[in-house]
Design a protein around this nucleic acid. Structure first.
Length: 271
DNA sequence: ATTCTTGTTGCATC
DNA sequence: AGATGCAACAAGAA
């Protein structure tokens, strides 16, 4: 479930290779995650390079190597990163593997292949990294920019708008539901109906959910407390941990959405 | 067997 | 022109 905090967790799974050199690279040649890449050329460039650092922003990861090499990874829907030695059993979905000196191998595994591998070499910063929107947990993300964005997307349901990475980097389906549930807004509320009080509340709740998710899931993949919607949203019949009333699940903005009708009523956004 | 899915993109339509 | 909605991508799980 790679959203903001899951991506942060997976990023660190490759850190055992930092400071080591690339011994070899293996690719699953026909895998969709490697589309558009010259895998032969990248293997040649990577071989012998030193792994410098790992980074995560939104749902994108970057791994920097010597000689100005960047490897970008997006986990899509089902991607994950693993680190293992010779003992690790291969899976059919090890689409991209970097073998490091010292015997640690770095695996990008993705059954459903909505993920993607990116490559860059140069003195600058690759476009796919530079263009990521300011983090929700930064000062640049504030009620003013949220208000401007909601106005532009005025006719779309707020649930769909929160999934737009150009303004809400790292927010995915469960985080969007968690935010709307905590803030008390109906997922179908039109973005253009949000008043200044509601926008402040939405902005603060976005920051809170990101902070909480990073502490719990981003740190060591701990289970979120039962007090979060997170634990109750995955199947029909769940109960709201606050109101104890039934949760509803329907498709809104093209995604499965779970909310508490008792806690999230249309109209609350008009303040 | 059928339906569902935690993300993004490209295209059709409004 | 810009915003919005939706199918498509692939494959496991229920």
């Amino acid at each position: 479930m790679p959203e903001l905090a899951e991506v942060e967790y997976f990023r660190r799974q490759w850190n055992a290779g930092i400071g080591k050199k690339v011994v070899g690279v293996s690719w699953h040649k026909t895998a969709r995650v490697n589309r558009g890449l010259n895998t032969v050329k990248i293997s040649r460039l990577l071989k012998g390079a030193t792994f410098y650092s790992s980074h995560a922003a939104a749902k994108q990861m970057a791994f920097r190597f010597s000689n100005g090499i960047w490897i970008g990874l997006h986990l899509g829907m089902t991607g994950r990163l693993e680190c293992g030695d010779e003992q690790r059993a291969p899976t059919p979905y090890d689409h991209f593997v970097i073998k490091m000196s010292g015997g640690k191998n770095l695996f990008f595994v993705d059954p459903r292949q909505f993920g993607r591998v990116l490559f860059y070499q140069g003195d600058g910063v690759p476009d796919w990294w530079a263009k990521i929107a300011p983090p929700i947990l930064s000062k640049a993300f504030n009620a003013e920019v949220v208000a401007a964005f909601l106005e532009r997307r005025s006719r779309a349901p707020i649930k769909a708008v929160l999934l737009m990475q150009e303004r809400f980097p790292g927010i995915g389906n469960w985080m969007a539901d968690e935010v709307l549930w905590r803030a008390g807004f109906h997922p179908s509320a039109k973005a253009g109906n949000f008043g200044p009080v509601a926008i402040k509340k939405l902005t603060a709740t976005l920051k809170k959910v990101c902070t909480d998710a990073m502490r719990v899931i981003g740190k060591d993949w701990s289970d979120p407390p039962r007090t979060w919607l997170f634990n109750h949203r995955w199947s029909d019949g769940g109960k709201c941990p606050h109101s104890k009333q039934h949760l509803k699940r329907t498709e809104i903005g093209g995604r499965t959405t779970c909310w508490s009708p008792a806690k999230q009523k249309l109209g609350a956004e008009r303040r």
